[in-house]
Computed example of a mutant assay.
Amino acid sequence: MNLSEKFWEKKYETQKIGWDLGVVSPPLKFYFDQLTNKELKILIPGGGNSYEAEYLFNNGFKNVSVVDICHNPLENLKDRVPSFPENQLIHGNFFDLEATFDLIIEQTFFCAINPDLRLKYASKMRDLLSDEGKLVGLFFDAKLNEDHPPFGGNKEEYINYFEAHFIMDIFTECYNSYHNRQEMELFVKFVKK
């Protein structure tokens, strides 16, 4: 299964971006609104059009970076937020990234990568986080597709990927999901061990 840059660029070009809510995800907005440290170094991997990055940036979080394998969504974010720093819009493969962050936001990236990479994802997340850094976001709790994204899964499966690397501070059914994702998401806050 080749989920290459070309694969994803074609999705944007043909507007086959069903994962794109067009707004900041409600559970993430609720979480962001509780954050008080505007100096946090934040990463949004596979950020797509990244309404989350836009929301954070417009609310005073200036150390927000987005990494995406495609140019198209990074350009879309730049068009919507012209003052967003270019060097924080990273065109590249998440797994090649070398930096550290205080907080990494998961929003439809995990379900977009080949499931064979999930253990590698968990390990890479740990590597990218500073001491006591947090991975916060949403995972699908549903059986979805097996041959193309989005790929689903469940809590029991996910525990196997993350328990070696993280303290699972919050790992629960999401009560405030976007309307078309009700009863299909888990909200997580994992703290680096």
Rank of each mutant, 00 (worst) to 15 (best):
D79P: 00
F139L: 15
P85H: 02
L3N: 08
S130D: 15
T14L: 14
F140H: 12
Q34S: 13
G47E: 02
K11E: 06
M168Y: 08
K192G: 15
D131G: 05
I167A: 02
N58D: 01
Q34Y: 01
I69R: 12
D102R: 07
W8P: 02
C174F: 05
P26G: 04
L97P: 03
E106G: 05
Y121K: 10
G47T: 03
F190T: 13
P150H: 13
Y55P: 09
W19R: 13
P115E: 12
R181S: 12
D102S: 13
E13S: 08
I90T: 12
K78I: 05
S83E: 15
L89E: 03
P26W: 09
D20W: 02
E106K: 12
V67E: 01
V191Y: 10
S50H: 09
Q107Y: 08
L35H: 11
Y51W: 08
D68S: 11
R118L: 11
F140E: 12
I69N: 09
Y12N: 08
G22F: 00
F139A: 11
F190N: 07
Y55W: 03
P73I: 05
F109Q: 14
P115R: 13
G152T: 10
D20S: 00
G47I: 01
E106D: 10
T36G: 00
E106A: 05
L186I: 15
N37E: 13
H179E: 06
K193H: 13
E183K: 12
Y175R: 13
E54K: 08
L40E: 07
I170Q: 11
V66E: 03
N176T: 01
T36D: 00
T172D: 13
N76A: 15
T14G: 00
A112C: 14
W8K: 04
I105M: 13
L43V: 05
V23N: 05
E156T: 09
C174W: 01
A122H: 06
K10N: 15
G60N: 03
C174L: 01
L89K: 02
E157W: 01
D79T: 08
L28H: 04
F190M: 05
K120Q: 14
